[in-house]
């Protein structure tokens, strides 16, 4: 018990770092995901093709392999170009989470935008609005409430998936946990449980916030 209490500050720092990893990665994933979704909807195959390929490769390979490839593979390349300051577990962790989740968020955007009634576009066009005007003013505002639950879900998945950063010796919660479980190898259970409690404490309020916003935005639909 004494050991767990003394470990608590490190674990809390790890929790904070996990949150920072995700808060940095998720917006990038959203932006990139939107670009991918729009590329997938493009009539041009030279836009659609690469986007589809990226999405399928990311979804079809384990994130742990992706992060190792980024950290050791891209890291080695960066060192070659005298950019070794960029080759650390923070950049590798954030980049791999962002790239990985961009593929999933692209699917969320595609589904969300696709589920708005096509009659809405027709009404906007019939009033003389252009595709861009209809997209921004009519389609997107209706798609957002539909996309919030899957996006919140994905953010919670990301909080947990960020544990893979521990394989490249990061500073996230699971990395901290593995330091302690190695140090106290005869009595690891309390550290595992402490980590789980902290992950749970992160994800629960996020789910609540998501539900609140969904309810508010959906009210009019």
């Amino acid at each position: 018990m004494q050991a767990v209490l003394s470990a608590l500050p490190d674990f809390l720092q790890g929790t904070l770092n996990t949150l920072i990893y995700c808060l940095a990665s998720f917006p990038i994933a959203l932006g990139l995901g939107l670009v991918l979704a729009l590329m997938c909807a493009s009539p041009f195959v030279w836009l659609r093709g690469p986007a589809r390929f990226f999405i399928e490769v990311i979804r079809g390979t384990p994130i742990i392999a992706q992060i190792l490839l980024l950290y050791y593979g891209v890291g080695a390349v960066l060192v070659q170009f005298d950019l070794s300051t960029l080759a650390n577990s923070w950049t590798a962790g954030i980049t791999s989470l962002a790239l990985n989740y961009a593929a999933y968020e692209a699917e969320v955007f595609r589904a969300g935008l696709g589920s708005v009634d096509p009659g809405q576009n027709e009404a906007a066009f019939s009033l003389g609005m252009t595709s861009d005007q209809s997209f921004v003013r009519i389609i997107v505002p209706q798609a957002i409430p539909l996309m919030i639950p899957p996006l919140v879900n994905d953010f919670i998945y990301m909080l947990k998936d960020s544990a893979v950063i521990s394989v490249i010796a990061g500073t996230d919660l699971t990395s901290v946990m593995s330091i302690y479980t190695r140090r106290y190898s005869s009595d690891q259970m309390p550290f595992y449980m402490l980590a789980m409690v902290l992950y749970f404490a992160l994800s629960l309020p996020i789910a609540q916030i998501g539900r609140y916003f969904e309810k508010r935005l959906r009210a009019a639909l």
């Binding site: 009404a123 019939s126 009033l127 505002p141 209706q142 009019a220 639909l221």
Partner: peptide
């Protein structure tokens, strides 16, 4: 389309 408006069977009002 600015010259010729349209009214639909399903109304297609903007719900938001």
């Amino acid at each position: 389309r600015r010259e010729v408006g349209m009214v639909f069977q399903q109304f297609n009002l903007f719900p938001h």
